[in-house]
């Protein structure tokens, strides 16, 4: 699988490059020697079982956690992501799995939170117009941007979180389970959006459990298992290969279940394609 990295040689330097990144929470090694490259105009899907370290990796790149060791290079420079503000200033935007919205603030305030243009005199009209523009780009179904986020549904909140990440025109955008709470149309919109972001030359890291979504947009699929790299795949890799890499064995709960049912298709974890 590792020869896929050779295919990237024609490209320029990666936007983001991780070498030997490890993270320990006390005695637990959440991540061990992670290597990851994201190039401009590339969608990298990060897949793995629960507890594989995907969200931890995203939080390190967002500046929420600091790595225990290893180096992070962004746009050719070695960087220290000491806090979320530092990551945002560099141009790394994140949509967290828990969305990280303030429920007591309205949609406009959430989209601009921490990024208000004129600190001493908030321009509510300009902010509202920009919020509507972002939301309409996402074909969002938000009845009013002046309602507190607490009154929105899960999918609407997800759209708000994505709109917020786009506000700063980032160079790298990370989406942690971006389609988990979305309806059919919104999922398609988010996938379209990811492609649009990629076509603008940005790097995208996407975490998803939905192999169909992953295959639909990813240029490369990076598998994590128990906090370590466990292979890099192209989107045409078979489900069997992916599941094997994710679970760590060809003989596993998913394949046993598949053979037991003796279904011809080897689809696991998802609907038939």
């Amino acid at each position: 699988m590792t020869d896929i990295a050779g295919a990237d040689a024609r490209r320029t330097e990666p936007v983001l490059s991780l070498r030997n990144v490890s993270k320990n929470f006390g005695a637990v090694s959440a991540l061990t020697d992670i290597e990851l490259d994201v190039h401009a105009g590339e969608v990298v899907a990060l897949v793995g079982d629960n507890g594989a370290g995907k969200s931890t990796l995203v939080k390190i790149l967002a500046g929420v956690h600091q790595p225990s060791s290893g180096t992070i290079r962004f746009m050719g420079q070695e960087v220290q992501l000491t806090d979320p503000g530092a990551a945002l200033d560099l141009g790394i935007a994140t949509v967290f799995q828990d969305l990280a919205l303030c429920e007591n603030l309205d949609v406009v305030a959430n989209i601009f939170l921490g990024r208000e243009a004129v600190p001493w005199r908030l321009d509510e009209v300009a902010m509202e117009v920009r919020a509507w523009t972002l939301l309409n780009e996402l074909s969002a179904r938000i009845p009013s941007v002046r309602e507190p986020v607490a009154s929105l549904s899960g999918g609407q909140r997800q759209t708000v979180a994505i709109a917020r990440s786009l506000l700063l025109e980032p160079k790298l955008i990370m989406l942690d389970e971006p389609t988990a709470a979305l309806g059919v149309a919104q999922t398609a919109e988010v996938l379209n959006l990811i492609e649009r972001v990629r076509d603008r030359g940005l790097g995208v890291i996407m975490i998803s459990h939905n192999m169909e979504d992953v295959r639909a947009v990813a240029d490369r699929i990076v598998v994590l298992r128990l906090g370590r790299n466990n292979g890099v795949f192209l989107p045409d890799a078979s489900n069997h290969e992916l599941v094997a890499a994710i679970t760590g064995a060809t003989e596993n709960a998913v394949s046993r279940r598949a053979s037991r049912r003796e279904a011809p298709r080897m689809t696991a974890q998802e609907e038939p394609r």
Partner: peptide, 18 residues
């Protein structure tokens, strides 16, 4: 705005770069 955000969801405010 940051005061209200911190009172509503401290972690979200932190991740927004406040």
């Amino acid at each position: 705005r940051s005061m209200i955000a911190v009172g509503g969801n401290r972690e979200a405010a932190r991740r927004a770069g406040i």
